[in-house]
Design a protein around this nucleic acid. Sequence first.
DNA 1: GCGTTTGGCATACCGCCGGTATGCCACGTA
DNA 2: TACGTGGCATACCGGCGGTATGCCAAACGC
Lengths: 222, 222
Amino acid sequence: MATVAGVAGISRRQQYSAATRRALLRAAEQLFAVRGYAATSLDAIVSDAKVTKGALYHHFSGKQGIFEAVLSDLEDQAARSITKAMKGAKDPWDQARAGLTAFLEVLREPAYSRLVVHEAPTVLGPQRFAEQEERSTFAVLRNVVSGVLNGDALGVDSQMQETFSRIFFGALAAAGDAIVESTDPSAATQRVEAAFGLLLDGMRSLVGTPERADGDAEISGS
Amino acid sequence: MATVAGVAGISRRQQYSAATRRALLRAAEQLFAVRGYAATSLDAIVSDAKVTKGALYHHFSGKQGIFEAVLSDLEDQAARSITKAMKGAKDPWDQARAGLTAFLEVLREPAYSRLVVHEAPTVLGPQRFAEQEERSTFAVLRNVVSGVLNGDALGVDSQMQETFSRIFFGALAAAGDAIVESTDPSAATQRVEAAFGLLLDGMRSLVGTPERADGDAEISGS
DNA sequence: GCGTTTGGCATACCGCCGGTATGCCACGTA
DNA sequence: TACGTGGCATACCGGCGGTATGCCAAACGC
């Protein structure tokens, strides 16, 4: 014990340690987002954070370790933002629309797009990246897809829902790139939403639940 | 002049030079595909090719240079394979189906999937990667999309076709990953083709092709 | 209060990697 | 046959990720 300020039983050493850890994460996220993973040196990170490599290797396992920590922060933040944006939706299709817009908004921040979508799969490897994603944004998307394709006339089982989720995830990532690299992002966003609207309307016309929307009892754990 | 063997006016020096260049490309493609770009050292490449770094830097501008050469080979090969597979198709939707199957086949070879789809965007940067893709597989896909969405009732201009192409490209890449990482690739391929079939049928029902919109909406391809 | 322990770093150093500078030598050319 | 040059090999450099070591104040036991 021996706490100094009565915050929550946190000693001064722990406060300082957490501060340096946050500084490292902050500097790393900035540099990774701007220069990319390979072009970012640990010396640059610790220089920006005003510490040394000893501090970095005390808090993280190495370059990949601090990268995963940055990723984890970004994914948690993104997942919260998307789930929050889907709160008011009534039927699953409206929820899908809201989630789509929110996801596109997340993809427009350079850190998420570059690090989570592009760099993470090659840096972490496919299976480790899948583990990361399975607990955050991909889980959200999977719930949305499950809500849309549940209880339809077509034979869409859980494996098909997984397949659809993977496909839509890739489609959304590419759409985010198209928006970011566009000269007119707002116009590009409108085109992307129009394109996905066409895809969703097409699926809805086939699945054949225009407004019934019966099986939306449990879509997400919100 | 002064040709040794009368092949086609190619001197012995040029033959040797081309041979070492091919050996370098071959070794680089192998190592890049297996270990990835970052984990592949130039020493390993020149060791496998049984030359030295002097030879590599004589033929290529550096690590990124030989990587781009490998990419160029892979993309040309892929584009030829896909266009060849689409030769027999008559209506645009059938062409899209054939191109889809052929593209999924290409994505199953590790070199293309890992290098072109995953590593290339981060190694080359977005705009340089776009230049590469614009001349090969992406151009093919864009033609297919253009054929499908041309002259429809909906207001789909060229920019929307570009957007659709980008989205489908991302979707196909993710689908390829899902297939490769699956424990049962053939079953995963059937699921992917069923999912894209649903998407295409949905679009077709909206676009409203007058002729033969037969309801072959079989989802499970098993 | 006081020695002791230990978490939280800083410093110094190592091996490897991408890239460059230099040199050489057989092949092509006249 | 003499010369010029393409096609490499060799040697070396700065920077990188990672490790080993040391120190020092803050926490803890008494």
